[in-house]
């Protein structure tokens, strides 16, 4: 980053997230191949692509789980994410929801949200922390948003699959991130739940930027946002869902040669 002239950073000043020529390889397999992507503040973006296109690896790179071999990942025009680890990136305001819902099973729904609430994460604080009225109000509000108000005292492990997905989205909201990365949020959901989830994401997008990785084309169509198609670790096509679904290269990749 230091090698870049000041002007280059200025050029990406109105972007929230900027991936530039990111490559990652595992044992010779190129998971990401010079991937570049620009996300504007407040934008919701759907990322689609066949298996092995690099969607999850892209999320791993953004959240600090995987370090890229080359390339830059710039957040808010001034922070190079490749220099930071997962907790630091999470505290910067990037939340991530995993494909497989992971909530803290022995904890109640309430405690799951409490742990996710934005705030001091250091042991010195949590050892002494008491629940404040403000925190309680925040949790109540999130419980309403994710429709789990009646389940607040249940253990996370006792929830149904769909409820876990929502609890996890609720935990993301509690983190108050600027950018949410959501990996296959509707996998395994009923049609009604899928519809509700799309609604939830649109609502979230009113205040935050969102990147959704999804297989379900109907769901992506329902979101009605700009779509990025990944293939073999780089961007194959970008635009509206109608635009990309008419792109011959996309058709070739999805329908086979």
């Amino acid at each position: 980053m230091s090698a870049e002239p000041e002007g280059a950073i200025g050029a990406v000043a109105d972007t929230l997230l900027y991936l530039d020529g990111v490559s990652v390889s595992f044992d010779g397999f190129r998971a990401l191949n010079s991937l570049s992507l620009v996300l504007a503040p407040g934008e919701m973006r759907a990322v689609i692509g066949p298996n092995g296109a690099g969607k999850t690896t892209m999320m791993d790179v953004i959240t600090g789980k995987t370090r890229p071999d080359t390339g830059r990942v710039v957040f808010r025009a001034d922070t190079d994410l490749t220099k930071l680890d997962e907790p630091a990136i999470a505290q910067l305001g990037i939340g991530r929801k995993f494909q497989k819902p992971t909530v803290f099973e022995p904890h109640t729904v309430w405690d799951n949200l409490l742990l996710a609430l934005a705030g001091d994460r250091r042991p010195g604080f949590t050892l002494r922390a008491r629940e404040t009225a403000e925190e309680r109000a925040r949790i109540e509000s999130i419980l309403r948003t994710i429709r789990l108000s009646d389940h607040r005292a249940r253990r996370g492990g006792d929830l149904s699959h769909g409820q876990k997905q929502w609890l996890e989205i609720g935990m993301l909201l509690a983190q108050e991130p600027e950018l949410l990365l959501v990996d296959e949020p509707v996998a395994g959901m009923t049609d009604a739940e899928t519809e509700q989830t799309a609604e939830l994401l649109r609502e979230i997008n009113r205040t935050r930027s969102v990147v959704v990785v999804e297989h379900d084309m109907a769901f992506v169509r329902a979101l009605g946002v700009k779509v990025t198609v990944l293939h073999e670790g780089s961007v194959l096509s970008e635009g509206t869902i109608d635009h990309v679904s008419e792109d011959p290269r996309v058709i070739e990749v999805y329908l086979g040669r």
Binding site: T63, K65, D85, E86, P87, A90, Q91, G95, R96, F98, T102, F104, E105, P106, L115, A116, R121, M171, Q175
Partner: peptide, 10 residues
């Protein structure tokens, strides 16, 4: 129970 999850929570 879920170490990596706590990391992504910060």
């Amino acid at each position: 129970d879920a170490e990596s999850r706590t990391r992504f929570l910060g």
